[in-house]
Design a protein around this nucleic acid. Sequence first.
DNA 1: TCACAATGAACAA
DNA 2: TGTTCCTTGTGAC
Length: 307
Amino acid sequence: MPEGHTVHRIARLFEGLFAGQGITASSPQGRFSEGAALISGRTVQAVEALGKQLFITVDNDLVVRVHLGIYGAWDVATLEGGHARAGSASMESLGAPRVSTTRIAEAERTRAEDEPFPPAPIGAVRLRMETDRVVADLRGPTACEVLTPEEVLRVRGTLGPDPLVDRGELGLGEFVSRLARTKRPIGIALMDQSVVAGIGNVYRAEILFRHRLDPYRPAQSVPEDVAVDLWRDWSVLLEDGVKTGVMLTRSDLDAAGRTRALRSKAERYFVYQRHGQPCRVCGTTVSMDLMAARKLYYCKACQSALP
DNA sequence: TCACAATGAACAA
DNA sequence: TGTTCCTTGTGAC
């Protein structure tokens, strides 16, 4: 998925495109027809992200909750000069990576000249939201449902703090105490959305490496000052990810290296999907284990000391 | 053509 | 712990 940074980007983009606007909602694929009918014709009041969840509130107090899961994505097209346009700087596809590259290229090719607006949906579109000049298509979400405000509160209650929502000491304290409360491995705890909301498999692996933490170490045994560092580091990474749209977690790069890494996926990470290759710091072969059925990447040499 | 992977999580047992 | 679901692109046949 689309970890937390992607969802915050979507929320900011949608806030600009839809807030205050009347929308028409539909489900070209048909699986969300009833939900779409509940919000169609309404005005969007707010678009918010919390962890990996997106909440779109409309003026009858109903809220659409969207969770992209591993491969969900939004494609956005805007009307410019009478023609559909997709793929410009702000019109990226937001979600699963394979979509964001190929789908955009495709969209630019096929929609540049004469496709009428709105463009026909491509593939299995669960939800289409449109205004006079904007169309957003959602495909492959793990969750897309209409909730009442009370139900939204219940969902939010299951989530841990998000640095961009729970700013300042509040989120920090909450994270530290939730981490101290679990004996499970720190590699599991960081992925647990009720401990901290928004971290996924990529950020999990990279944050652990950045702090040279053994993924198997009980979360409880992580010293409080280290826990504080983890939260601050996650806050920085998240903000950076929202800004660039890219998860760039290397701390060992100069400006030129950073520019390269922003372009090339192979340069972005310390350990994620680098198993079998030498650790960028010590040269030891990067390991890959299964932890709770997810792939865990780490360096056994760098991430073994007990601080 | 087909198996499989992918930034996730709910559920059964 | 294992299974299932959501959708698409890739790479092996």
